[in-house]
């Protein structure tokens, strides 16, 4: 192994690690606000990547149908709730807006010449398609059971993931998809060639993390989410709606997922079921951070990216085994640090 290969693998590791860090962030965000381990996080990534790929290769984009169908179901659920309360409960705002966005995005994917509108417009349309999936999934599958035992939430999360992967196969088929890079430029720094895609990924990751930091530290919605994460009941008592907090965190998760998908699509071939494996590496990062510490999780995710890149070089067929085995020492350490017996909520 020479310097050049090290740089190349390191670069790969940084790009993947950055995406895993974003996903770890998103997983912990959703977990701390809602207690849900968002197993379908990876589906946002895969659906975004495959939608971009479908647009660029001129194939029909079917994701709009799923989003629209979910929006219709969510609207019907809202209507049923209002009807059952005999008008005492106001019509919840939000879902109708999502229905409108979903309908518009569906129409656009059917009328626009998708392969010729340019990458930026493709990305925008992908965002408009996938981001509503977040709050819609929360509304349809989780809102009614938000107060349930965390085991129930986990099982529903797995079930939604399983259903989404099946739907993904239906929408995108079994073929993989890869998109064009944002630009073909390379930069020479010392002995290494740095692909501009790598820089895009790093820049976008940093920008997103900065944005989230500002959102949580400075804005009212961000602080409301943070309050919910610290003390759910307390936040509810001071008027922060748990439904709103749940939807907002799922929206952010979907947004982070879409961006990760768009960033990773030019680098890796994505299949309809690739999302799970990708997000699982985010989970490994989140576990390293103990599901609570964002910086530790981000560092952990970067480390996972490196470990993956280098094990691809040395023992490519054992790549996944090596990555997931890295969980063991982390769990041992966590287990030794944890001595008190607690009752589960």
């Amino acid at each position: 192994m020479n310097m050049q290969i090290v740089m190349l693998l390191g670069q790969d590791g940084v790009t993947n690690g950055a995406v895993y860090a974003l996903l770890a962030l998103s997983i912990m965000l959703v977990f701390s606000v809602t207690r849900i381990l968002l197993i379908p996080q990876g589906e946002f990534v895969a659906f975004a990547a495959l939608t971009m790929a479908a647009m660029q290769s001129g194939r029909a984009v079917q994701l709009g149908w799923l989003v629209f169908a979910l929006a219709v179901v969510a609207t019907l659920m809202d209507a049923a709730k209002v009807w059952r309360s005999k008008g005492r409960e106001p019509w919840p705002h939000g879902t109708l807006g999502l229905l409108a966005v979903a309908a518009l995005a569906l129409v656009l994917t059917k009328v626009l010449p998708l392969d010729r509108i340019g990458m930026f417009a493709q990305a925008l349309l992908t965002i408009a398609l996938v981001v509503p999936l977040g709050p819609l999934l929360y509304r349809v599958f989780f809102q009614a059971i938000a107060a349930a035992h965390s085991l129930v939430l986990l099982i529903v999360s797995i079930a939604v993931h399983v259903a989404l992967v099946g739907t993904g196969l239906l929408m995108f088929g079994p073929e993989g998809g890869k998109t064009e890079p944002f630009s073909d430029a390379f930069f020479e720094i010392g002995p290494a060639m740095i692909a501009s895609q790598t820089l895009w990924v790093i820049a976008a990751t940093l920008a997103l993390m900065g944005g989230l930091w500002v959102f949580f530290g400075k804005t009212l919605y961000g602080r409301a989410l943070q309050a919910t994460a610290v003390n759910r009941l307390g936040a509810e008592l001071v008027g922060i709606s748990p439904d709103l907090a749940g939807r907002a965190s799922f929206t952010l998760a979907a947004a982070i997922g879409v961006l990760s998908g768009i960033l990773i699509a030019p680098i890796t071939t994505i299949y309809y079921d690739s999302g799970f494996i990708i997000s699982l590496k985010g989970f490994v990062g989140a576990i390293i951070g103990g599901l609570t510490s964002f910086p530790v999780a981000a560092l952990g995710a970067l480390f996972i990216g490196q470990a993956e890149a280098f094990s691809t070089f040395w023992a490519s067929s054992y790549k996944e085994v090596i990555v997931f085995t890295l969980l063991l020492p982390v769990l041992v350490w966590r287990s030794l640090a944890h001595t008190r017996v607690e009752d589960e909520e």
Binding site: L280, I287, L331, R334, S335, H338
Partner: peptide
């Protein structure tokens, strides 16, 4: 079990997911 059962209830399912995937690849 030794490394996950002392921790909160989320670690066993996550641990078994990772281990289940690894064994399948193996």
């Amino acid at each position: 079990g030794a490394i996950t059962l002392r921790l909160s209830g989320h670690y066993l399912p996550l641990g078994t997911i990772a281990w289940g995937l690894s064994l399948y690849y193996l």
